[in-house]
Design a protein around this nucleic acid. Sequence first.
DNA 1: AACGATGTCGGGAACGATTGCGCAAATAAA
DNA 2: TTTATTTGCGCAATCGTTCCCGACATCGTT
Lengths: 344, 344
Amino acid sequence: MKFEVVTIKDIAKALNLSTSTVSRALRGSYEISPETKKLVLEYAERMNYRPNPIALSLKEQRSRAIGVVVSEIANNFFSQAIAGIESIAYNRGYHVIITQSHESKERELVNIQHLVSRSVDGLLISLSSETSDLSYLQQLYEKGFPVVLFDRISNQIDTHKVTADNYMGAFHATEHLIYQGFKRIAHITSSTHLSITRERLQGYKDALAKHHIAVNENLIKYCNHGGMMIDEVEVAVEDLFRPKIKPDAIFTAGDRLSTICLGIIKQKQGAIRKAGFIGFTNTNLADLFSPPVSVVRQPAFEIGQSATELLTSMIESKRPVTTFETKVLPTNLIIRESSLQQQD
Amino acid sequence: MKFEVVTIKDIAKALNLSTSTVSRALRGSYEISPETKKLVLEYAERMNYRPNPIALSLKEQRSRAIGVVVSEIANNFFSQAIAGIESIAYNRGYHVIITQSHESKERELVNIQHLVSRSVDGLLISLSSETSDLSYLQQLYEKGFPVVLFDRISNQIDTHKVTADNYMGAFHATEHLIYQGFKRIAHITSSTHLSITRERLQGYKDALAKHHIAVNENLIKYCNHGGMMIDEVEVAVEDLFRPKIKPDAIFTAGDRLSTICLGIIKQKQGAIRKAGFIGFTNTNLADLFSPPVSVVRQPAFEIGQSATELLTSMIESKRPVTTFETKVLPTNLIIRESSLQQQD
DNA sequence: AACGATGTCGGGAACGATTGCGCAAATAAA
DNA sequence: TTTATTTGCGCAATCGTTCCCGACATCGTT
């Protein structure tokens, strides 16, 4: 099952020229006479010649492809980020190879090794929630392999990073709840391995502190699988609302976490149902919810774009890049009914 | 900015052997003595040798990668389908290269050419809404290049196809609305170029016919950009509800179409707001809507898996495949409040 | 002792493209 | 006319790997 294509050799043979001449003619080299150029160009056009990228990769030691590792494609944030990645990569002539870690550090490692062996020119990574040891990546990176971290970043490795302003996003969300009069604001988040978890948690805590509300560790729940397991979230919600003194608002720190939590709330009655709600999520459908849901929205598309720009510039840089930037893009607080204090 | 790796040549030099011997030792050839094998294997292991997939691709004329063309990644159906594709491809040792057509036939063509020139071993395609002329694909396919169509298929090309049972999905959805007492059921769909449009439309019409309801062409609106342009949908909805005699229910035929339509309905009053609603969508959040939305859900993940299984079997088939199957997977009708007749 | 059989290994072409170098012919300069 | 320069093109190496052949050495057989 082969798919025969014309090569530079075929053209050379047909035109009674050498492959070098054909190659140079195609690349418009000055050392080829205009007549020969025209001849070759026209024939190549007619035969629909396309240079073989694999051969080029082998010769030039680059593949013009970048690898992406995310936890899950079917997640609003990531699918939007990938769209952003693809938009820039496409323009710069790179292919995008996508892999999912499913929040597993083993799978993440296998994916990275796979991509590297496949000679991708660079890597765009959002860490899995299990990942704490970055030594493999570190090692790879120190050998000069371009890596850009996005969304879930780490300070264990010194390279370009792009992320949303998780701290301020969480801070403003929490402060908004406080302004609305909520006093006992619960926070449901994921593994503390993740930078986004820690940043959002800090924003939450600092907002409370600013308004002289003591942080209550019982109001903070960690779902280590980040919403990959529904049970985990159910347990967290039930734990929160079991005590006599219940939370009056919930602030969730992740896309899946938010939607799952909303689903659980919907099935419940009483205090749970009445609690204020705001969450980090990138769904476009939040205003269709009942009640319309307040969200912290991340500029996912732009994060993907920005990370890809940094990566391609690193790949194409002549000398080793030594100064790195960490881009922090502002989040968008969209207030709808769910986070408003009900007057009753 | 290079990333130096050990090659078979390095091993040969270090061990004072020829590359042929090293190659054979690594592949466990019988003509290499056990001692030499052991020596090579251990050294390769120690140096963390990985065969260069690019070189292999060049030699073997295959890349162990499959190309995917969809209209948009950030769409529930496609992101779920891609997850299914990736799950099978991963197990069979293939990489997945994803591209988006953004519903443009030019972009689709460029992507396909790009992927082919990059020597993907096969193609998984869901056609753009603009595509009517499949001659390029046809031509490619006739040269023996493995192609599997999924979701948006075409009978212009004879190969494996995988799709949801759009006809029955639409039929049952429409019939459900009829059973609920709705009489004037509008249908908002996309370009008739698409197989899914035609199949769903036919299901809709046949359900009406079965229940002796005349098809009213004024109640059918075609959004040729399939929800990529919001205006288009707004115009459609307004056109539907402008006449004196208004529809009492809406049935939408696509993911984006459904959610956009729901957004529009939400902003309106009166007849529009009160109309029954059901739509094709793969969002997981439909029961969080207000009211909870009835949907026709496609087995997106399974469609992706199935298409990938067929493609890889085609790629790996020794002799040309001549008999093709069209897999039709059942849809899932999930009834919630939005499609129930309100008793008032 | 001569021969074939077997076991181990290396040489080199091939996959498709680029590119430094060299060579011949044509042209320009002396 | 002779020399120098330019023009136009081919040879061959290279990227990493596989694989067809051919080259030996060793062993057993007659």
